[in-house]
């Protein structure tokens, strides 16, 4: 009974904090204070200060993430809606995604190794440019930690959405298609939301890059990352 009460409490806490942080985010509009960052920090602080351990939070976690799988499958829908665009520029899109994914993954893993980080952190860093639901799954397969992987994904997404567009302009990358793909590939969902402000084409391209790079890295990661490690 004690456990059930705790589970109900943690679920209620998580849902209410999420909606409060969503309201805060919409009000203050500071790009790096995302609902995920605000909520996670608030919940960790509340749990620690009220003496709740992660073990007690875990049963609620299983219930709350139940819909994550179906939601991830739903990523096929925006990809399908952009199929005309995808078909029209298939070759540049695919080459861009393959070169972008491999270069970012390789730099992250090699620099992490050179910095002397342990294998768990290096493996969790490999998926940092992949959209979170798929990064979690890949990190499980390659021996990373899903929670750390999410932290790196969020950090990368936030960084990319803050400096990405100015960095692209600095490098004289002005083509809308190139800018959209670059933002979606490097900063996934957060990058997509940012570049959408430049136009529908950029936003659509970012969505395409986010989904395709996640699929591409899923295929190569189990072989390529152990080889790099």
């Amino acid at each position: 009974m004690q456990n059930t009460t705790m589970t109900v409490f943690t679920i209620f806490l998580t849902i209410s904090i999420y909606f409060i942080s969503l309201k805060i985010y919409q009000k203050i509009k500071v790009p790096f204070l995302t609902p995920l960052l605000i909520s996670t920090t608030a919940i960790i602080l509340i749990l620690i200060s009220s003496g709740v351990t992660f073990e007690q939070y875990k049963p609620g976690k299983a219930i709350m993430t139940f819909l994550l799988g179906p939601a991830t499958v739903g990523l096929a829908l925006p990809l399908y809606l952009n199929r005309q665009l995808l078909r029209k520029m298939l070759i540049p899109i695919l080459i861009g995604i393959v070169s972008g994914s491999i270069s970012t993954l390789t730099t992250a893993v090699i620099l992490a190794k050179l910095s002397g980080l342990d294998a768990l952190l290096v493996a969790s860093m490999a998926t940092k440019s992949i959209t979170a639901p798929i990064a979690i799954e890949i990190s499980r397969i390659i021996g990373g930690d899903p929670a750390i992987a999410v932290a790196f994904v969020v950090f990368t997404g936030t960084l990319g959405s803050m400096i990405g567009t100015s960095f692209l302009s600095l490098c004289k990358i002005n083509s809308p298609v190139a800018r959209g793909l670059a933002m979606g590939l490097s900063a996934h969902g957060q990058g997509t939301a940012t570049i959408l402000q430049e136009g529908q084409l950029q936003g659509a391209m970012a969505g395409v890059a986010m989904a395709l790079s996640a699929i591409f890295v899923s295929f190569i990661a189990p072989f390529y990352i152990p080889w790099l490690l």
């Binding site: 849902i15 939070y57 609620g60 976690k61």
Partner: peptide, 13 residues
């Protein structure tokens, strides 16, 4: 979608 990552990220504690 971001909601689902909150319970996962809480493990960072």
């Amino acid at each position: 979608l971001a909601f689902f990552f909150i319970p996962i990220a809480v493990e960072l504690m």
